[in-house]
Design a protein around this nucleic acid. Sequence first.
DNA 1: CAATGTATACCGGGTAGTGAATATACACAA
DNA 2: TTGTGTATATTCACTACCCGGTATACATTG
Lengths: 208, 208
Amino acid sequence: MKDGAQPTRERILQAAGKLFHRDGIRAISVDAIAEKAGVTKRTLYYHFRSKDDLIAAHLQARDEPNLTLFKRWFDEAEGDIAAKVAGIFRHLAQSARDAKWKGCGFLRTSVELINLPGHPALVAARAHKKRIEDWLSSLFAEAGAGDDALPLARRIMLLLDGSFAVVLLHRDPSYMETAADAAAQLIADSLSGARGNGSDLPGAASVG
Amino acid sequence: MKDGAQPTRERILQAAGKLFHRDGIRAISVDAIAEKAGVTKRTLYYHFRSKDDLIAAHLQARDEPNLTLFKRWFDEAEGDIAAKVAGIFRHLAQSARDAKWKGCGFLRTSVELINLPGHPALVAARAHKKRIEDWLSSLFAEAGAGDDALPLARRIMLLLDGSFAVVLLHRDPSYMETAADAAAQLIADSLSGARGNGSDLPGAASVG
DNA sequence: CAATGTATACCGGGTAGTGAATATACACAA
DNA sequence: TTGTGTATATTCACTACCCGGTATACATTG
């Protein structure tokens, strides 16, 4: 660590983060990351055992800041809990309007590593998504959703990850506004205890 | 075309389909496809200009059968339109219980080709998803959803692609049951003309 | 000295795509 | 019927390159 500015390891991680997010895991070579970090490949391999190791470390490093951002978006939004969750989607829509927006790194990585079920990066990705789900679930529980809290959180996760997938494909952020409305509707339905309100569906509480 | 059994081109396409779906686009080499098809690589390049060409042809070939399958699942389900759409999700859940299930090839391909915006395979993927959305929209219009038909179809698409993404990550098909319930709920809400039923959200008709 | 960190040069393996030649089938003319 | 031309279909061998990872030696610092 000869430069006091930023430890070498962090610089590598940051370079990897940018490149992985921009082009994907497989499309980026270790050489490219080393060059972007201003470091030789051998140095990179001193700090990380393998490329897979680096990928996993990258996702682990993104977990906390990502969750924190979602919490901030929630906190900053006005209105009841439905409106505040919808606010997350609207912030997401705003981000997605940037041409350089590249969707959810956790989801994309999980697609690229589909044939390596035990990969540590997949474990990190699952943990991240579960953390968000748990956070949402606790929010709904506090708001009085009762047994509906978890299934409701799972519905929101479906809309969230669905947004990432659909907008990545169509490049049309308005889907995230659609998702915001749908999320708000589902939350309002659950919190008003409106199960069985004229519909013949199995009920909002079933988780399968 | 010396063998009457199956034209070479179709055999290549079929081999590519299996391998691409199993391991992903980038993970499969042209050599592997040629070998699986029982053909030399040079022959493959006679029938397809490039690997990208083959990828695009592969997705185009999947468009029709995929849509047909969804329609069959819809037709075969019992109950009102909400229950029939939910039936699609439940069939999907059944498929996803197979350990070899690999999610949606259109979505996965779009992730792998994210840095090639004009790639013909992406065009094919978008067209496919739009066809499903249009089909759903027409169903809802026939059922009397009026102006809600399209936004409702988009909500279902979000749940559908969200299911693919989430189940691919967590390997937990029960999310598709959750999606089935959510879809049925959203459809029932729209068709009962229940806008403004106690909730303060922007309304089911806004598309953004 | 010993621990940590960096640099150069290299290896073995895999990749998309190609050049040149060959085999097959069918149309048409002698 | 035989011969010839031509488009289709297929093969083997090859190039040029990129990738993850490593052997080895050198530098810096406590």
